[in-house]
Each structure stands twice: as structure tokens, then as C-alpha cells.
Computed example of a mutant assay.
Amino acid sequence: MPSDDAARLGALYDAHATPIWRYVVHLTGDHAAADDVVQETLLRAWRTPHILAEDPESTRSWMYTVARHLVVDEARSARRRREIPVEEPPESAVRDATDAIFDAMLIEEALAGLSDAHRDVVVRAYYGGLTVAEIADELTVPEGTVKSRLHYGLRALRLGLQEKGVTR
């Protein structure tokens, strides 16, 4: 059975692909797009068995209509309206350090607004990568105190950044 399907698909291609391709090239002027439209048209014909059962002229008329609809749909698509063809692809963008510098300056200013105890805990936790237990050992304070300072320090830091207009 699969070889029968392959033979029917080959016959469909042989009978209709070239005229449909010429028609689409006439409409679009684009050989690559014509290949895609012909492929989609043949696929739709293949998926519509009652079309294949009709006489070849009716089948070809149906395929011309489908191809025209595909060309019109592509012309109207949002992708086509937004694409601008260029000769060479643009160079990839390289992020500069400007945003990172401004972020660091904002954070530095906000950290300066914290009390020494809160700033010390926040810096050790987030920039030093220390755990609550490690910070408590270094500062010789209970872990609960470190957690409390970290909580209130981060809250004050967030408020300080919001006052400077940082919303993220």
C-alpha cells in the first residue's frame, strides 16, 4: 500500500507541480517562495482525497486557487510586513558595561544608606556568598540576629532603590 501512495503522490507531482510553480512565480517573482507554496499546495491536495478523485482539470483549478490563497495569506501575514530583507545579516549586538555600571552605582548608593550592621550582613551574604551560620561566626552574633539584620537590611535596600526609581 505505501508504494501505491508513493506512486499516486509522484503522479500528482508530475501532473501539477510545474504549472503551479510557474503560476506562483508569476504572482510573486520569488522562486524559493514558489517552491514552498507548491509543496504546501500538493500537501493540501494529498490531504483532500475527494479532490484527487475528480478529473485532472478540476484538480488543477482547485490547486491554482489554493496556491493563490497561500500567496495572499503570506503577503498579508504579520511576519511578512515586519521583515525587511537585507543583503547581509546584521552584526550581533555586543552588550556594553554601561547598564552594569549604573546598576552598581545605584546599589552602592542604596547600600550606603543602610546602617553599618545591616550593610555588613547584606554584603557578606550576597557579595561574599556566606551562609547565615558563617556570617554569625564571623560577626560573633546569634544566627537569629543575622537573619533579622538580613531581612530588615534587604527591606531598607529595596526601599532605597525604589526611592531612586528602580522598579525591577
Rank of each mutant, 00 (worst) to 15 (best):
Y13P: 01
A125T: 10
A100I: 08
L12C: 10
E134D: 15
E83I: 08
A136V: 07
M63G: 03
S148W: 11
L130K: 15
E88N: 11
L9C: 07
A133I: 06
A67L: 05
S148M: 09
W62M: 02
L27Q: 12
V86R: 15
V166I: 10
V25A: 07
D55H: 03
G29Y: 04
R82D: 12
Y126A: 04
L159H: 13
L9T: 03
L9V: 05
D36Y: 01
D5H: 13
A110K: 05
T167H: 10
A32E: 15
H151S: 10
I135Q: 02
V146E: 06
E88L: 14
E83K: 07
A11K: 11
E40R: 12
P90A: 09
T167M: 09
I51Y: 11
A75S: 11
E163N: 12
L154Q: 15
Y23S: 06
A125H: 15
P90D: 12
D137A: 14
E108Q: 14
A104Q: 07
A78I: 09
D30I: 06
A104M: 03
R82P: 00
D103L: 11
V166Y: 13
R68P: 04
L157G: 03
G129Y: 04
L43F: 10
R68S: 11
A104I: 00
V37D: 01
W46L: 05
L52E: 09
W46G: 08
I51K: 12
R81L: 12
T167N: 11
D137R: 14
P142Q: 05
R44E: 05
P90Y: 08
Y126M: 12
V72S: 04
K164F: 05
L70C: 08
E57Y: 00
E109D: 14
G144K: 12
A17F: 04
A75P: 00
S61H: 11
D30K: 04
T65R: 15
H31M: 04
R149N: 14
H118G: 01
P49F: 08
A67Y: 01
E138P: 01
T41R: 02
I84M: 10
L9G: 01
A93K: 14
A45K: 00
I20N: 04
L159P: 00
R79S: 12
Y23F: 15
V37P: 01
D116H: 12
G113W: 00
W46D: 07
A136W: 09
